[in-house]
């Protein structure tokens, strides 16, 4: 059911986004960012549509979408966990966190999103929370001084919350 509604709403939203940016090709990155917020990734058809609407070639849109790390052409989880592997975090054992969370979520280096599309696990080079190393970011929220146990607890909470939401 949610599928039907969201497909339509998303497409309307895509058009609103393009209009809000006046179909301006120099706004492409902002358009892609906002569209990705809608779909949680960038579907091929939508990228073709954007290319058409802002009058640039699909290859150019594809080139931009694949250049930046934050864009994804495959569906991403509702919660994007970014584990900081910057210098400060690396020195303070962020690798252990990566191993633990991958194990917890059943993910690998090549598979970064859970099958239920709840979580995506990524490593990033620095989230600028070096004073709190090791740090992780879940969507826009930063968690500092994270241990594998603490990380698992945070995930448990999210899973519980989601379960409750789904039941309602």
């Amino acid at each position: 059911m949610s599928d039907i509604k969201s497909l339509n709403r998303n497409f309307l939203k895509v058009n609103e986004i393009i209009e809000a940016h006046h179909s301006d090709p120099s706004e492409l990155i902002s358009i892609l960012q906002e569209v990705q917020e809608e779909y949680r990734y960038l579907p091929e058809e939508i990228l073709n549509y954007i290319a058409m609407a802002v009058h640039i070639s699909p290859s150019k849109v594809f080139g931009v979408a694949t250049f930046y790390e934050n864009f994804s052409l495959a569906p991403k989880g509702k919660y994007i966990i970014r584990i900081c592997d910057g210098t400060a975090c690396h020195v303070r054992k962020s690798t252990e966190l990566i191993v633990a969370l991958r194990k917890k979520l059943g993910l690998t280096e090549n598979k970064d999103t859970t099958d239920d599309l709840l979580f995506t696990l990524q490593t990033v080079s620095c989230i600028g929370a070096c004073g709190l190393a090791p740090a992780i970011m879940i969507n826009e929220e930063v968690h500092g001084k994270v241990t594998p146990e603490k990380a698992e607890m945070i995930l448990e909470e999210i899973i519980k919350r989601e379960r409750v939401n789904n039941e309602q």
């Binding site: 990228l47 290859s59 594809f62 080139g63 250049f67």
Partner: peptide
């Protein structure tokens, strides 16, 4: 054709 991806993965290819 255009550039896609970056760094060591950079490649020239048609869209998608």
């Amino acid at each position: 054709i255009g550039f896609a991806y970056r760094g060591a993965d950079a490649a020239v290819m048609p869209a998608f």
